[in-house]
């Protein structure tokens, strides 16, 4: 009897384990995310010979908890969300990132009404303006800009700005600053550059005023138990598939020139900053 239960349990668990699930932080407009990840799901399915499914989420926290609860085994995360996920899932690790991701930047952007001009040094005169971050859990939209604001203006954003908001994602940050709902904002430089190229930004209304020094950001993080779930060497296979990816269309959707190998310790600076400003215990 016990054997039957055990076997049926095993059968059930293998049935469910067949699909390799992955998720991503919802850092931009949903349509863009769906386009990007449905393509890469198809690509991975061909490479890995297992069913691959993309699970869309509405918040950074939801992507982390899905990863933690083994509802997804792979996640495209930001610097901060990656560090958080790896702290929660002890044997998980970073496997790949875009070639641009080790040298990532945040743009501080301002509505042209403010008359703030582009500068090489930190724009001290953003003090007293209304300011919007991206998502609360974002690296380039929250953690790093907050770090540089605290370092240069020696105070917390709540004290420094007339109003502090969280737009939710980078696309939204751009549109809120462009419309004047907020005077200043912090945005992922990749999203800005792509939107600018696509002609979606009205530079008579919103402009970049400062670029942060470089920091490491996005990466693919995988659960340590995937080899148990999908067979030995599976995580290596995933890593190899990502790194050799050269489909122009998929890469443009991210947008990254190509993917390179990455390891968890690359993100130690993020962990340190996160602890410094109290976002990580």
């Amino acid at each position: 009897m016990n054997k039957i239960i055990l076997i049926s349990l095993l059968l059930v668990s293998t049935m469910f384990a067949k699909t390799f699930m992955f998720t991503a932080i919802p850092d931009q407009d949903e349509t863009k995310l769906n386009e990007r990840f449905s393509k890469i799901a198809k690509y991975l399915e061909n490479e890995l010979h297992v069913k691959v499914k993309f699970i869309p989420v509405k918040s950074y926290a939801a992507s982390i908890s899905a990863f933690r609860n083994n509802q997804v085994q792979l996640a495209w995360l930001g610097g901060l969300s990656g560090v958080r996920a790896r702290l929660l899932v002890k044997d998980s690790y970073a496997i790949a990132q875009g070639i641009e991701d080790p040298q990532f930047h945040t743009y501080i952007i301002a509505n042209t009404h403010t008359n703030l001009k582009k500068s090489e040094i930190f724009p001290m005169n953003i003090k007293g303006k209304t300011f919007t971050f991206g998502s609360k859990g974002s690296t380039s939209g929250r953690l790093m800009p907050e770090y540089y604001i605290r370092e240069n203006l020696k105070n917390s954003p709540d004290e420094l700005f007339k109003k502090v908001g969280f737009s939710g994602n980078h696309s939204k940050t751009i549109s809120l600053v462009q419309s004047g709902a907020y005077e200043v904002g912090a945005v992922n430089f990749k999203v800005w550059d792509r939107e600018l190229k696509a002609g979606n930004i009205d530079t008579s209304k919103v402009q970049v005023i400062w670029k942060t020094p470089a920091f490491p950001d996005y990466q693919f993080t995988i659960r340590g138990d995937v080899d148990e779930q999908f067979g030995k060497g599976f995580s290596k296979k995933v890593q190899a598939a990502l790194i050799k990816l050269d489909d122009k269309e998929i890469l443009a959707a991210f947008p990254r020139a190509k993917f390179i190998e990455s390891k968890s310790s690359d993100f130690d600076p993020i962990l340190k900053v996160g602890r410094e400003i109290g976002l990580i215990d």
Partner: peptide, 9 residues
Amino acid sequence: IDSAIADIR
């Protein structure tokens, strides 16, 4: 509450 969830606290 939303912030605490974002920080997974």
